[in-house]
Amino acid sequence: MRELLRDIRAYLRADFKPALYGLTALWVAFLITINYTFHLENGIIDRQPLSPWRPVWYFGMYATAYYGAFWLWSRFHHRPDIWRNPRFWFHTLVALVVYAYYAGFSAYVDWAQRFSDYRLYLYAYKVFSNLHSVVTIVLPLGLYYLFFDKNRTGFYGLKPKRKGLLVYLMLLGLMVPVILFASFQPDFLEAYPTYRNMTPHEVLNVPEWITALGYELAYGWDFVPTELIFRGFLVIGLSYVLRTGASQADKSSPAIPSLLQPGPVLPMIVWYATIHFGRPLGETVSSLFGGYILGVLALSTRSIWGGLFIHIGIAWLMEAAAFGQQFWPK
């Protein structure tokens, strides 16, 4: 744990510049203000959920946020070379295209409609909406890794590592009392459990716990592509690309491990915040802090398993707390 905390302090010393972080905060505040004032996602992009133009809208929104933040980062870290680096453009554009396509993907609606019984349709719709990332994110990134990635150091952090597990356990443990308290609030119970008003077990003639378990596994999987692309592809993967043009001063600093040179965490969290634009404002703001911590930890451990552990753990704890409330004495 001490080693991990030392790595985090080393990264902050290398990357933190008051003006950079202040201007990045203003950039994020501007993007958030535009979205929540004009309802960019809920009122414009999602107005036509089956439109083939949705991925294009998402690409424009994500690219504006991400490259704007990267421009600030490159200016303050004196890295104009990244804009002349074809690998930087190829790597980041792959991420933007893949995630924009994932966000605007709607073919799973047709997949679910193959089930004529509404009880099966609703269940299949929710399960497919969580699983389509297998073909929209994992498959494209896998092909990129096999045919284009020149740094074969593991599939973007999916190799399990023990480093940092205690920190992740502590972070998840801190959330337990918060989730328990929230589970007694009416607005929490209006949203959770997400497995509700579905009776596919009646059609399939199986115990309900089987269909509930299948749903929860698919629900948990939906966090895998998020961590894979944001902490794996955009932090771990891109850090190798950025190191090729790092200044000699950064490379030779004895206080900063080579894998913790100023990297792509700050621009990543700006884009990460935009994927929460359809959710409550508080969730969008908190994603900045959570995304930053997970990004630095991923850079330090070269693994995304800690982020997966926290994300999936919190999601399932919230589901479990809501299910528990159904049996709690009123």
Rank of each mutant, 00 (worst) to 15 (best):
T33P: 08
K17P: 08
Y58L: 15
M61R: 06
I45N: 03
H39V: 07
A25G: 08
F59L: 15
Y21F: 13
L31V: 04
I32H: 00
P55S: 00
I44Q: 14
R54F: 06
W57N: 12
L23W: 13
L50A: 00
N35I: 10
K17M: 07
Q48G: 00
E41A: 01
P52C: 01
L40R: 00
V56N: 04
W57A: 13
A25S: 10
Y21P: 10
N42P: 02
P49F: 00
Q48N: 11
V28T: 05
R54Q: 14
G60L: 05
V56E: 04
L20R: 06
P18H: 00
T64D: 04
N35W: 05
P52N: 01
K17W: 03
T33D: 09
H39S: 15
P49K: 05
L50G: 01
S51I: 03
L40A: 00
T64Q: 04
E41Q: 11
W53K: 12
F59H: 09
M61I: 08
F38W: 15
G22W: 10
S51G: 03
T24C: 14
A65V: 03
A65D: 02
P18Y: 00
I44E: 15
Y36E: 14
W53T: 11
L31R: 04
L50Y: 07
I32W: 05
A65I: 06
V56C: 02
R54T: 14
K17Q: 15
L50R: 13
I45F: 09
A19G: 01
A19Q: 10
P55D: 04
F38K: 07
I32V: 12
V28P: 03
Q48T: 06
S51C: 05
I45H: 01
F59M: 10
H39F: 02
F16G: 09
G22Q: 14
W27T: 12
W53N: 10
H39T: 11
I45P: 04
R47K: 12
P55K: 03
I34H: 07
G60V: 02
Y62K: 12
T33Q: 12
T24E: 15
P49V: 01
I45Y: 08
E41K: 11
I34K: 07
W27P: 11
Q48F: 09
Y36Q: 14
K17F: 02
V56P: 08
H39M: 14
T24F: 08
A65T: 01
I34F: 08
P49E: 10
S51L: 09
T33L: 15
T64A: 13
W57T: 05
A25Q: 11
G43Q: 11
F59I: 05
W27V: 12
G43V: 02
Y62A: 10
F38D: 13
L26D: 10
P18D: 06
L40H: 00
L40M: 09
S51T: 07
L50N: 08
P49Q: 06
L26P: 09
I45E: 03
P52E: 00
T64Y: 02
Y21N: 10
I45W: 02
T24L: 14
